[in-house]
């Protein structure tokens, strides 16, 4: 089945909230309302023609207007795949630490369990009714969600220094404790800004290389 047939099949179930197929994208995707997500997933898994045995990947993407949660589904017996998207728009007047919420699909696909925990850990997207909802990669005491665009880099974690110019633990003088560093503006990296010779994109990009002779 190709994506178009899969989409037709989904539409034929009579569930509301299933958007159009974006067939112009490189990987055609279907936007689904969060309210029917579990029903759609269960249908795709159980129907003998769609037979999506595996949820391959769960990703959350932060955009300017809100968050996308992307599900990549694969069928190993039928050799096809489909991408589902849930779009959570940021309500007006919400602050930067707003946490979007979508239903957890771990009850349909247990493989979503760790993926969803990772998305919560790194991006701060809540998955309702998740069986074991806590951080997975960063320590429990970590503050903030580092993949957010406005994430402020920490200078220490507990007593562990995370900065390049920090004083080593065993060289610290107890009578003269290090002063707490000034809070950084959002999104600033830990080290010095790039030099003018840097090829980093934030340094204005690489200077165009001189044309070599004999090269078309």
């Amino acid at each position: 089945m190709n994506e178009q047939q899969l989409h037709d099949k989904l539409r034929a179930t009579g569930l509301g909230g299933i958007g159009e197929l974006e067939s112009s994208a490189r990987d055609p995707f279907v936007v689904v309302e969060a309210s029917v997500l579990l029903e759609v997933m269960a249908f795709l898994r159980d129907d003998s023609e769609t037979a999506m045995e595996m949820l391959h990947n769960v990703t959350a993407v932060q955009r300017e207007t809100g968050f996308d949660v992307v599900y990549h589904l694969c069928s190993y017996s039928r050799h096809h795949s489909l991408t589902l998207k849930v779009i959570v728009a940021q309500p007006e007047g919400e602050a930067g630490d707003w946490e979007p919420a979508v239903p957890s699909v771990a009850s349909v696909y247990p493989s979503a369990n760790w993926h969803e925990r990772e998305q919560w850990d790194l991006l701060g997207v809540r998955f309702n009714d998740h069986p074991d909802f806590r951080r997975i990669i960063l320590p429990e005491e970590w503050i903030g969600h580092p993949l957010r665009k406005d994430y402020v880099y920490p200078s220490t974690f507990g007593e562990i220094p995370l900065e390049l110019d920090a004083i080593p633990l065993y060289e610290r003088d107890e009578n003269d404790p290090p002063k707490p560093s000034e809070p950084r503006p959002a999104g600033t990296p830990l080290t010095q800004p790039p030099s003018e010779y840097s090829t980093r994109p934030d340094a204005g990009g690489r200077a165009p290389a001189p044309e070599k002779k004999g090269e078309s």
Binding site: L122, I137, L138, P146, L147, P189, T199, R200, P201, D202
Partner: peptide, 19 residues
């Protein structure tokens, strides 16, 4: 897990495709 988390996804959002 997480004892070898090296921020690969954050780095990916900050460097160029080739880098």
């Amino acid at each position: 897990i997480g004892y070898l988390h090296r921020c690969a996804e954050k780095i990916g959002e900050n460097v160029t495709y080739l880098q």
